[in-house]
Simulated assay, not measured.
Amino acid sequence: MPARRPARTALAVTAVVLLSATASACGDTGGLRGAGSTPAAAGPVKLWPGLRPAASPAYPYDVATRETVKGVAVPGDDIRKVDPVDVVEAELKAHPADYGPKGTYHATVDRMKECRPGRDRARCPLLEPYYRDLTGDGRPDLTLGFRLYPTNQTGVRVYTVEKHALVQVLADNDAITGVELAGRALIERSPADISGYEYRTTWVWDPGQRAMVFSRDEYLHIGDGRHGRTPSASPSVSPSAPPESPSAPSTPSVSPSASGR
Results as ranks from 00 to 15, higher is better:
30 G>L: 09
51 L>V: 09
93 K>C: 01
76 G>I: 08
82 V>F: 07
62 D>M: 04
81 K>D: 01
33 R>H: 10
81 K>E: 09
54 A>M: 12
77 D>R: 14
86 D>C: 00
79 I>F: 03
94 A>G: 03
103 G>N: 14
73 A>G: 09
89 E>K: 15
102 K>A: 14
80 R>V: 01
47 L>Q: 11
36 G>S: 10
102 K>T: 08
51 L>Q: 14
32 L>V: 14
49 P>E: 12
55 A>P: 00
97 A>W: 01
91 E>L: 11
60 P>Y: 01
60 P>C: 05
37 S>A: 15
75 P>W: 02
36 G>V: 02
46 K>T: 09
74 V>I: 04
62 D>S: 09
52 R>K: 11
41 A>E: 13
69 V>I: 14
100 G>S: 12
66 R>G: 02
98 D>I: 08
39 P>G: 04
113 K>T: 07
66 R>W: 02
61 Y>P: 03
103 G>D: 13
27 G>T: 03
111 R>Q: 11
42 A>T: 15
95 H>G: 00
91 E>S: 14
38 T>L: 14
66 R>V: 03
41 A>M: 09
98 D>T: 13
37 S>R: 14
29 T>N: 06
60 P>N: 03
54 A>R: 13
49 P>F: 01
49 P>D: 10
41 A>V: 10
45 V>F: 02
76 G>A: 06
58 A>V: 09
39 P>E: 06
41 A>Q: 13
101 P>Q: 14
73 A>R: 15
84 P>R: 04
36 G>M: 05
99 Y>V: 02
30 G>R: 06
56 S>V: 11
49 P>H: 07
71 G>P: 01
51 L>Y: 06
96 P>F: 11
52 R>T: 10
42 A>I: 13
96 P>E: 06
73 A>D: 15
78 D>V: 07
88 V>F: 00
96 P>Q: 09
99 Y>H: 12
78 D>R: 12
98 D>A: 15
83 D>N: 15
50 G>W: 10
74 V>Y: 06
52 R>N: 04
96 P>N: 07
60 P>S: 12
75 P>N: 05
108 T>A: 06
83 D>H: 06
113 K>F: 01
51 L>S: 09
28 D>A: 00
72 V>P: 01
63 V>C: 10
102 K>H: 10
49 P>R: 15
31 G>A: 11
92 L>E: 02
45 V>D: 07
45 V>T: 14
80 R>I: 00
110 D>V: 12
48 W>C: 05
41 A>R: 15
62 D>A: 15
112 M>G: 00
30 G>C: 08
113 K>M: 10
35 A>D: 15
85 V>W: 01
93 K>S: 12
66 R>L: 04
71 G>E: 05
65 T>P: 01
34 G>N: 10
110 D>M: 08
30 G>Y: 00
109 V>W: 04
107 A>H: 12
78 D>T: 05
53 P>F: 07
